[in-house]
Design a protein around this nucleic acid. Structure first.
Lengths: 203, 203
DNA sequence: TTATTATACTTAACACTGTTAACTTATTTA
DNA sequence: TAAATAAGTTAACAGTGTTAAGTATAATAA
């Protein structure tokens, strides 16, 4: 029964085309400046064809955001395999998180800043990228505590505070590019150092 | 020449009506679900009248955001008059900042999260609310250093890192209301404590 | 007081939006 | 070969931000 498979493959191909076209347009022109007709034009299909693959424009954005989250997660999970002590991995992860945002500012904006407003975002269902990302963060914090490099703080609270701080720096740098920031790397590393120092065990 | 004054007053009145109607609608229905026609309906004028006071919808949002910024700034500046040592004032300011966001989530969203995307936001011209807010933050950090409660960190970098952390916690709590957050106050105070601990002078 | 000019506001229109229902065409199954 | 399914399109609806042109009213100048 290769026929059904071919059909499924074609359908999947078109879905990919739509996603790629939409991401390109969303990133270059901004979500609200991109119409379904523009996306359709780009893939040379009629606008309504998109609705055979996505319920509406918000769901199209949702699918793109989910892929962004996956890419970020892959970057982060790769890091823990490089080894090093717990704090080093945590620091590198934090740096990578912000770096990802600054390297793909429009994608970060769509996924973490803009998306929640359109679609109650960030599913944390078992196995979702969001859930895996947060489990990764929890494990890092826990490791720092077990290695006695952090004082015995609450893992969940600390994880959320760390995410907050990193998301804050990232989203401000992205959202206000004209603000008179100090050197970006200095700012990022200072924010990370302050947090880590504040969590360190008293010596 | 009371006539011109009356006219100016009427004009100002209508501007206020537009701003109030627009803020109410933006906050209750969301910026993109509010049309210029809806705002006009609410004040019982034709849609085009709004364009005699604001260049376009984004500028209308900009004016509302500026007022929100003013309100936040007033709240903060009131705090420093209550007295207390430098760290206490800094902590209370940080708490107030987040509290403001959580008490007016839609306003915070419009001003700090959503606005930048529509209009390259946050003017820092001499005397603007944004500029005053940042001067206030710098002064607080400086005071903590001079009182030897903070180690001699760079004031500008530290201020920006603090703002980042607070904005991050605030915007995440607002943007992801369904996320399994720990107790909000615990999270907020933990984030603040970690930062302050990380900045304290070694004793 | 009358004619002119400026102000405040409205009507009508343009080009575009997300989305749905109804239709056509091609492909697969019975 | 006929019926059913799938894939894709056309046409339309109700609504959008915004502009140009028009109208009425009030203020000024003659």
């Amino acid at each position: 029964m290769g026929i059904q498979e071919r059909k499924a493959r074609n359908k999947e191909d078109l879905r990919r085309q739509i996603l790629d076209a939409a991401r390109h347009l969303f990133v270059t022109e901004g979500y609200e400046n991109v119409s379904m007709r523009k996306v359709a034009d780009r893939i040379e299909y009629s606008p309504t064809t998109i609705y055979l693959h996505f319920r509406n424009k918000a769901e199209l954005l949702g699918a793109i955001s989910e892929e962004t989250l996956q890419r970020l997660l892959n970057t982060l999970e790769g890091l823990s395999k490089e080894g090093g002590d717990a704090i080093t991995i945590l620091r590198k992860s934090a740096q990578s998180y912000v770096a990802f945002g600054l390297e793909h500012p429009k994608d970060y904006d769509l996924t973490f800043i803009k998306r929640p407003l359109y679609q109650e975002g960030l599913r944390l269902t078992e196995g979702s990228a969001g859930e895996r990302a947060f489990r990764y963060l929890r494990a890092m914090v826990n490791e720092c505590i077990e290695q006695k490099q952090f004082r015995p703080v609450d893992v969940e609270t600390t994880g959320q505070a760390l995410w907050g701080a990193m998301h804050g720096v990232t989203s401000l740098l992205i959202s206000y590019p004209d603000f008179p920031w100090v050197d970006k790397n200095t700012l990022i590393n200072t924010a990370i150092d302050i947090m880590i120092d504040g969590l360190k065990a008293q010596t």
